[in-house]
Design a protein around this nucleic acid. Sequence first.
DNA 1: ACGTGTGAACTAATTCACAGCA
DNA 2: TGCTGTGAATTAGTTCACACGT
Lengths: 221, 221
Amino acid sequence: MARLPLYLRIAEESLRAGTATISSEELARAGGINSAKVRKDLSLLGSLGTRGTGYDAASLVMAIDEILGVTRDWPVVIAGVGNLGRALVNARGFFTGGYRLVGIVDTEPSLLGTMVGTSIVETFEAIEQRLASPPAIGVITTPAEAAQDAAQALVRLGVRSILNFAPRFLEVPSDVHVRYVDLSMELQILSYHATLGREDEQHDVASVSPIRSVASKVQGS
Amino acid sequence: MARLPLYLRIAEESLRAGTATISSEELARAGGINSAKVRKDLSLLGSLGTRGTGYDAASLVMAIDEILGVTRDWPVVIAGVGNLGRALVNARGFFTGGYRLVGIVDTEPSLLGTMVGTSIVETFEAIEQRLASPPAIGVITTPAEAAQDAAQALVRLGVRSILNFAPRFLEVPSDVHVRYVDLSMELQILSYHATLGREDEQHDVASVSPIRSVASKVQGS
DNA sequence: ACGTGTGAACTAATTCACAGCA
DNA sequence: TGCTGTGAATTAGTTCACACGT
């Protein structure tokens, strides 16, 4: 289920805040969703909650860690050294847990050998030679025109999962999983809602509780 | 509908390629979805297609442009000057069409006055003074801790739509629309699928047509 | 009491299948 | 003949509502 990472994040935050136990209602509020949905989702990981009390945050984190394999080792290769590729390499919070950058690839000759973060840009051949075992995940941050070639090269490397930021559908073998993130599409979807007026709200919390203090200084912290 | 930007992109590509007409089957293949879904979606923009022929790419582009308001003017403010904020400012393809960067905001004093792309980083107060009309869209690329404050400040500026990259649910008035993009969550979802083996495929095209030439040189182009 | 776990009801989304028009 | 547009059927996802354990 695609919401497990959300619950994981909230449970971790709860732990950091010193709260040992968290109810489905609290998880729902922090995630902007319905509490029944939270319980349905969590119930299919087994019975983790205690009736009358809620969920133990630590057990919840461990259970979701286990399912997602977040603590396992996930070697990641990035294909495409553009603004976005560079940002991901340097962004705090992207390579967390077991997600570990093992290589950066580009086809542009002038970029080969240059440093991006702590990695050196290389060719697909070079990385294939260098790595003992194939990377698990490939991230595509190339222009759209190069994305399909990059995908095929990543599959050849042994990648089983691809995160594609290029605005292009990828044809890959059926056992390779692809997720698409198209940033310009996100803007267009936002303006669609702004254009056609409001229809319905995703997050019931938002419509129930208006923001607390609009007048308060917000950039001072 | 959230798939309209996808159809827009494909229709535009089709036009650029010199193809004046495109069928639901072609749109479906290029988008990795089902052709019936394409027809259902497009039918509720009115009858744009010609039976026996397909859709006229140019009319399709115009119709979707109209609905999404892509050609209208959309002033955008970015809050948060980190790796991602900088990448978005400089990324080709993010600020296209009517989406126009009108300001960059941060609370970190040392960043104020510095250049990012062609913009100068300023405070929320400064931008409020400077802009004649409120920006339509806000993009949050701050750390999670600062995201809620940034959201409130953006709403105060008059923003009606927010694209939030911070891993945090935002409480905003119900007439403000928020979309969430959590990049580390994307990695976790990918590894979830890799961990629990394959279940079903999203894109039927992928399972029907294996990639054409795995053995071909892919990074040579 | 309180909050989980879950059948049942409901709502939304997808896919089928085909009538109807170019 | 080919492809759209769309009712009908199907499937998925969400929400309700409450029995049950603690």
